Simulated scan of single mutants.
Amino acid sequence: MESTSFNNQEMKQWGVPSIENLFRDYPQLRMHEADIRTRYGMFEKTKMAIEREEGLDRFTHGYKDFGVVMMEDGRVRCMEWIPNARAVYLKGEFDNWNLISYREVGFGKWELFIPANRDGSCPVGHCSELKIVIETKDNQTIERISPWAKYVVQCDHNQGFKWKFWNPPSSQKFQITHTRPRKPDRLRIYEAHIGIASESCEISTYRYFTSNILPRIRDQGYNSLLLMAVVEHSYYPSWG
């Protein structure tokens, strides 16, 4: 990883867009100009590194490559970014919890292909449990849920979560039955967190949010939602 530190001369080379407009509206931020320029420079440097290696478009489609993904030919492709690991394995209910080895493919990436069943079907059953096993270079063995997991469920007896492979039959997959809404002339964004939307001391549901909160948001004139913490997390108050 390249250093992201800057000296004063380098810092001045980064032109922060509309920075003087920012200072005109919020003059109290002028005292933080050095930090703002440094942070913007770090952003530009990181963006250029991404563009140089694979491009922003490719970078933002990581969800198509990472995690456990079923392919059109019935195989399952598994990929994780685990730098400094000595070995990585996948285990799960589909294979009686036997360890299957990933192979390192460079840049901290580990890859594994699981062949399709003889009839061409997916070898990993829908909602079967999976785990990643990592051997670290300091001789530790740890189990983890993939950060790219599409579906996890909370254990009844503790705060832990189980990773479930999400691949329902086509008859169960979500079908879009509504037309695309008309694009508004301008955005009026309402920030919401579905899990804490209820007044009760409980984790709220999508059904409650749809029936009780969305109408209130609509009636106040908002036309866009910014949903916080959509991704599940093992410690709920952290918001993921």
Rank of each mutant, 00 (worst) to 15 (best):
residue 4 T to N: 09
residue 76 V to M: 06
residue 85 A to I: 03
residue 95 D to I: 15
residue 237 P to Y: 06
residue 171 S to L: 08
residue 27 P to K: 00
residue 120 G to H: 13
residue 203 I to L: 10
residue 30 R to Q: 06
residue 30 R to I: 08
residue 92 G to D: 06
residue 29 L to F: 10
residue 186 R to P: 05
residue 61 H to C: 11
residue 118 R to T: 14
residue 207 R to G: 03
residue 121 S to E: 15
residue 54 E to H: 04
residue 37 R to Q: 08
residue 9 Q to N: 13
residue 148 W to E: 13
residue 228 M to S: 06
residue 230 V to E: 12
residue 144 R to D: 01
residue 37 R to H: 06
residue 9 Q to F: 13
residue 141 T to R: 15
residue 65 D to T: 07
residue 237 P to E: 08
residue 163 W to G: 00
residue 83 P to V: 00
residue 147 P to N: 03
residue 116 A to R: 10
residue 3 S to Y: 05
residue 14 W to F: 15
residue 6 F to S: 10
residue 2 E to V: 08
residue 86 R to I: 00
residue 150 K to F: 07
residue 100 I to T: 09
residue 140 Q to R: 12
residue 10 E to F: 07
residue 104 E to G: 04
residue 166 W to P: 01
residue 190 Y to N: 04
residue 233 H to M: 00
residue 171 S to T: 11
residue 42 M to D: 00
residue 209 F to P: 10
residue 14 W to M: 07
residue 148 W to R: 04
residue 4 T to Q: 04
residue 190 Y to L: 04
residue 45 K to Q: 09
residue 101 S to H: 07
residue 227 L to H: 05
residue 154 Q to A: 10
residue 3 S to P: 05
residue 47 K to R: 14
residue 92 G to R: 04
residue 130 L to F: 11
residue 36 I to H: 09
residue 139 N to A: 11
residue 79 M to S: 03
residue 147 P to K: 06
residue 145 I to D: 00
